[in-house]
Protein backbone atom coordinates (compact mmCIF):
# COMPACT_ATOMS: atom_id res chain seq x y z
CA UNK A 1 0.00 0.00 0.00
CA UNK A 2 1.37 3.34 -0.95
CA UNK A 3 1.30 6.29 1.33
CA UNK A 4 -0.92 8.97 -0.15
CA UNK A 5 0.04 11.79 2.15
CA UNK A 6 -0.35 14.82 -0.04
CA UNK A 7 0.83 17.60 2.22
CA UNK A 8 3.60 18.03 4.80
CA UNK A 9 1.04 19.09 7.41
CA UNK A 10 -0.48 15.63 7.41
CA UNK A 11 1.60 13.59 9.77
CA UNK A 12 -0.34 10.35 9.93
CA UNK A 13 -2.08 8.67 7.04
CA UNK A 14 -4.92 6.46 8.20
CA UNK A 15 -4.26 2.82 7.45
CA UNK A 16 -6.83 1.99 4.80
CA UNK A 17 -8.35 -1.43 4.85
CA UNK A 18 -6.85 -3.63 2.19
CA UNK A 19 -10.08 -5.50 1.46
CA UNK A 20 -13.47 -4.29 0.37
CA UNK A 21 -15.41 -6.31 2.95
CA UNK A 22 -16.46 -3.28 4.97
CA UNK A 23 -17.78 -1.51 1.85
CA UNK A 24 -19.93 -4.47 0.82
CA UNK A 25 -21.14 -4.97 4.36
CA UNK A 26 -22.27 -1.34 4.39
CA UNK A 27 -23.96 -1.82 1.03
CA UNK A 28 -26.01 -4.68 2.46
CA UNK A 29 -26.83 -2.72 5.61
CA UNK A 30 -28.09 0.20 3.50
CA UNK A 31 -30.09 -2.10 1.23
CA UNK A 32 -31.72 -3.94 4.12
CA UNK A 33 -32.57 -0.71 5.93
CA UNK A 34 -34.12 0.61 2.69
CA UNK A 35 -36.14 -2.57 2.26
CA UNK A 36 -37.42 -2.32 5.85
CA UNK A 37 -38.38 1.32 5.22
CA UNK A 38 -40.21 0.34 2.06
CA UNK A 39 -41.95 -2.46 3.91
CA UNK A 40 -43.16 -0.07 6.62
CA UNK A 41 -44.20 2.47 4.01
CA UNK A 42 -46.10 -0.17 2.09
CA UNK A 43 -47.74 -1.38 5.29
CA UNK A 44 -49.02 2.14 6.03
CA UNK A 45 -50.33 2.35 2.47
CA UNK A 46 -52.00 -1.08 2.57
CA UNK A 47 -54.02 -0.12 5.66
CA UNK A 48 -55.69 2.73 3.69
CA UNK A 49 -55.56 5.15 6.59
CA UNK A 50 -57.37 2.71 8.87
CA UNK A 51 -54.64 2.97 11.52
CA UNK A 52 -54.81 5.29 14.50
CA UNK A 53 -53.09 8.64 14.21
CA UNK A 54 -50.60 7.77 16.96
CA UNK A 55 -49.63 4.44 15.41
CA UNK A 56 -49.15 6.03 11.99
CA UNK A 57 -46.98 8.74 13.53
CA UNK A 58 -44.94 6.13 15.43
CA UNK A 59 -44.35 4.12 12.24
CA UNK A 60 -43.33 7.24 10.35
CA UNK A 61 -40.94 8.16 13.18
CA UNK A 62 -39.44 4.67 12.97
CA UNK A 63 -38.88 5.19 9.23
CA UNK A 64 -37.19 8.51 10.11
CA UNK A 65 -34.89 6.79 12.62
CA UNK A 66 -33.95 4.15 10.02
CA UNK A 67 -33.13 7.01 7.63
CA UNK A 68 -30.80 8.52 10.23
CA UNK A 69 -29.11 5.12 10.56
CA UNK A 70 -28.58 5.05 6.78
CA UNK A 71 -27.16 8.58 6.92
CA UNK A 72 -24.77 7.45 9.67
CA UNK A 73 -23.47 4.56 7.57
CA UNK A 74 -23.04 6.68 4.44
CA UNK A 75 -21.15 9.43 6.27
CA UNK A 76 -19.11 7.18 8.51
CA UNK A 77 -18.04 4.45 6.07
CA UNK A 78 -18.54 5.71 2.51
CA UNK A 79 -17.34 9.24 3.26
CA UNK A 80 -14.71 7.89 5.69
CA UNK A 81 -15.61 10.47 8.34
CA UNK A 82 -15.35 7.69 10.91
CA UNK A 83 -11.67 7.31 9.96
CA UNK A 84 -10.82 10.96 10.56
CA UNK A 85 -9.56 12.20 13.89
CA UNK A 86 -11.94 13.38 16.58
CA UNK A 87 -11.04 17.08 16.19
CA UNK A 88 -12.32 17.02 12.64
CA UNK A 89 -15.39 14.90 13.27
CA UNK A 90 -16.51 17.43 15.87
CA UNK A 91 -16.25 20.41 13.51
CA UNK A 92 -18.77 18.64 11.27
CA UNK A 93 -21.08 17.12 13.86
CA UNK A 94 -21.40 20.05 16.29
CA UNK A 95 -22.73 22.59 13.72
CA UNK A 96 -25.17 20.00 12.42
CA UNK A 97 -26.77 19.92 15.88
CA UNK A 98 -28.45 23.17 14.79
CA UNK A 99 -30.81 20.90 12.85
CA UNK A 100 -32.37 19.67 16.09
CA UNK A 101 -33.70 23.14 16.86
CA UNK A 102 -34.36 23.85 13.19
CA UNK A 103 -36.63 20.83 12.69
CA UNK A 104 -38.45 21.00 16.02
CA UNK A 105 -39.13 24.75 15.90
CA UNK A 106 -40.36 24.86 12.31
CA UNK A 107 -42.54 21.75 12.40
CA UNK A 108 -44.01 23.00 15.67
CA UNK A 109 -44.73 26.30 13.99
CA UNK A 110 -46.39 24.59 11.03
CA UNK A 111 -48.58 22.57 13.35
CA UNK A 112 -49.52 25.65 15.36
CA UNK A 113 -50.42 27.41 12.14
CA UNK A 114 -52.79 24.57 11.24
CA UNK A 115 -54.45 24.71 14.68
CA UNK A 116 -54.91 28.46 14.42
CA UNK A 117 -56.52 28.08 11.01
CA UNK A 118 -58.80 25.26 12.12
CA UNK A 119 -60.01 27.19 15.17
CA UNK A 120 -60.07 30.72 13.68
CA UNK A 121 -57.12 31.68 15.88
CA UNK A 122 -58.60 29.96 18.95
CA UNK A 123 -61.97 31.72 18.74
CA UNK A 124 -63.89 28.46 18.23
CA UNK A 125 -63.56 24.74 18.82
CA UNK A 126 -61.74 22.69 16.21
CA UNK A 127 -64.11 20.41 14.26
CA UNK A 128 -64.20 17.12 16.17
CA UNK A 129 -63.93 14.77 13.23
CA UNK A 130 -62.67 15.75 9.87
CA UNK A 131 -65.02 14.59 7.18
CA UNK A 132 -62.85 12.87 4.59
CA UNK A 133 -64.57 11.83 1.44
CA UNK A 134 -63.12 8.58 0.17
CA UNK A 135 -62.45 7.93 -3.44
CA UNK A 136 -64.96 5.75 -5.26
CA UNK A 137 -63.41 2.30 -5.59
CA UNK A 138 -63.83 1.83 -9.33
CA UNK A 139 -62.11 5.13 -9.89
CA UNK A 140 -58.89 4.05 -8.24
CA UNK A 141 -57.00 4.20 -11.52
CA UNK A 142 -56.03 7.59 -12.73
Amino acid sequence: MSSHVSSPEITHAPEHASGTGRIWKTFWVLSILTIIELGLGYYLYSQHGGLSHGFTLATKSLIGILTLAKAYYIVSVFMHLGDEIRNFIMTIIVPLCLFIWFIVAFLWDGNSWKNLRNTDAGSREAPKTEKVEHAPEQGAKH
Partner: peptide, 25 residues
Protein backbone atom coordinates in the same frame (compact mmCIF):
# COMPACT_ATOMS: atom_id res chain seq x y z
CA UNK B 1 -10.06 -2.20 10.38
CA UNK B 2 -8.88 1.27 9.57
CA UNK B 3 -6.70 1.58 12.62
CA UNK B 4 -4.86 4.87 12.53
CA UNK B 5 -1.24 4.90 13.52
CA UNK B 6 -1.56 8.12 15.49
CA UNK B 7 0.42 8.00 18.73
CA UNK B 8 -1.59 9.00 21.76
CA UNK B 9 -0.79 12.40 23.22
CA UNK B 10 -0.14 14.01 19.81
CA UNK B 11 -0.31 17.79 20.26
CA UNK B 12 -2.56 18.74 17.36
CA UNK B 13 -2.76 22.43 18.07
CA UNK B 14 0.96 23.20 18.49
CA UNK B 15 1.39 24.22 14.88
CA UNK B 16 3.41 22.76 12.05
CA UNK B 17 0.72 20.27 11.16
CA UNK B 18 -2.94 20.21 10.23
CA UNK B 19 -4.89 19.94 13.50
CA UNK B 20 -7.43 17.87 11.57
CA UNK B 21 -4.78 15.69 9.94
CA UNK B 22 -6.38 16.06 6.51
CA UNK B 23 -5.55 18.23 3.55
CA UNK B 24 -6.96 21.71 3.04
CA UNK B 25 -8.91 20.59 -0.03
Amino acid sequence: MSATTIPSGTKWWNGGRSPFNISYG
